[in-house]
Simulated scan of single mutants.
Amino acid sequence: MTARVGVITFPGSLDDRDAARAVSLAGAEPVSLWHGDTDLGSVDAVVLPGGFSYGDYLRAGAIARFAPLMDKLADAARGGLPVLGICNGFQVLCESHLLPGALTRNANLHFVCRAQRLRIENAETEWTRSYEEGQEIVVPIKNIDGRYIADEATLEELESSGRVVARYMDVNPNGSLNDIAGICNEAGNVVGLMPHPEHAVEALTGPTSEGLGFFTSILAGMAGASPSEARESA
């Protein structure tokens, strides 16, 4: 039975189709979800895509957290549903308190768009089991509110518990504390990532195809594969 992965569209989402294509290339069935829906339906995982939900008015992700579907998503995520928030989706997850910390204006106050080298720090989450710990990949990054911040105690907890999922290499493009590019919740089913793996799923359209592992990881997990088995089959 083909896994079904929901992709939520908010007013202002612009990477929802790219996320759906990545889901399809990974071998799952993408399911379109609308922010005003009140039911997630029978999906096995959810992706919150990048963009500018509600125009990023007030603060990036701050209005989207009140969308009707987010109440259902928050409950499902706390119950174990795998959820991936990419860029604006990461901002929404932080605003919804599904992940700690916040995403703020880039330190240089400029929009950044570039191919970015990352190091996978945690290969045990629902969304990274296709990678090796310490593996370096290149995916695009494009943001102006991508600087991850948190208080000292939160940063220490994230680092000590292995909840930093990915870290910037070579250059920190936005001033994120500890070079953090992505984090996860305690259970590892909710991941927020500022770079865009959905734009690196095939050589024709991306700098690499190394982002596809985020999407194949979730399928391997649904099939009951361990992280090592997922890496062998990737």
Rank of each mutant, 00 (worst) to 15 (best):
G162R: 10
D75T: 14
A60F: 09
E136K: 14
G12W: 11
I218K: 07
H199R: 15
A60E: 01
A150W: 02
K72L: 05
A223K: 15
L193H: 04
I183P: 00
V23P: 01
V5D: 00
A181E: 09
F66K: 04
A220E: 00
W127A: 10
V139M: 07
F215H: 05
S13H: 06
P49E: 01
A20E: 11
H196K: 10
L177K: 10
S228D: 04
W34R: 15
S96V: 11
A181K: 01
V92Q: 00
S96E: 13
V5E: 00
Q91Y: 06
S96W: 02
D179T: 08
E124L: 14
H110W: 11
S53P: 15
N108M: 05
A64W: 02
R119K: 15
A123L: 06
L193Y: 04
V164T: 04
E186Y: 09
Q116T: 15
S13L: 08
G85W: 02
L177P: 00
S217Q: 06
C184G: 07
R21L: 15
I144T: 13
G146K: 03
I218F: 09
H35E: 03
S228Y: 05
F215N: 00
D170C: 05
V190M: 06
L155E: 05
C184M: 13
A234R: 14
R21T: 14
A28P: 03
F66E: 07
V83G: 03
M222L: 15
D37E: 10
A28W: 01
R117P: 06
G211M: 10
L84P: 03
G188K: 08
G101L: 08
L177Q: 14
G221T: 11
E132K: 15
A230P: 03
V5H: 00
V191W: 03
A76S: 12
A28T: 01
V201T: 11
G175L: 11
S13K: 12
G134N: 10
W34H: 13
P68C: 12
V92E: 00
T2D: 05
R65D: 04
I218N: 03
I141G: 01
G192N: 06
P82H: 08
P197L: 14
Y168M: 05
V23W: 00
A223H: 14
L81V: 09
R78A: 13
H196S: 07
E121V: 13
S228C: 07
L155M: 12
D71M: 05
S130H: 10
D16T: 04
S233T: 14
F90Q: 05
R105C: 07
L48H: 07
D15H: 13
M222Y: 09
E29G: 01
H199Y: 12
A3W: 13
H199T: 11
E156Q: 13
P30C: 09
R105G: 09
L25C: 05
Y168K: 03
D15L: 09
L155T: 06
T154L: 07
K72Y: 03
L103C: 10
G89K: 01
F90V: 13
D151K: 12
A62T: 12
F111S: 01
R17A: 04
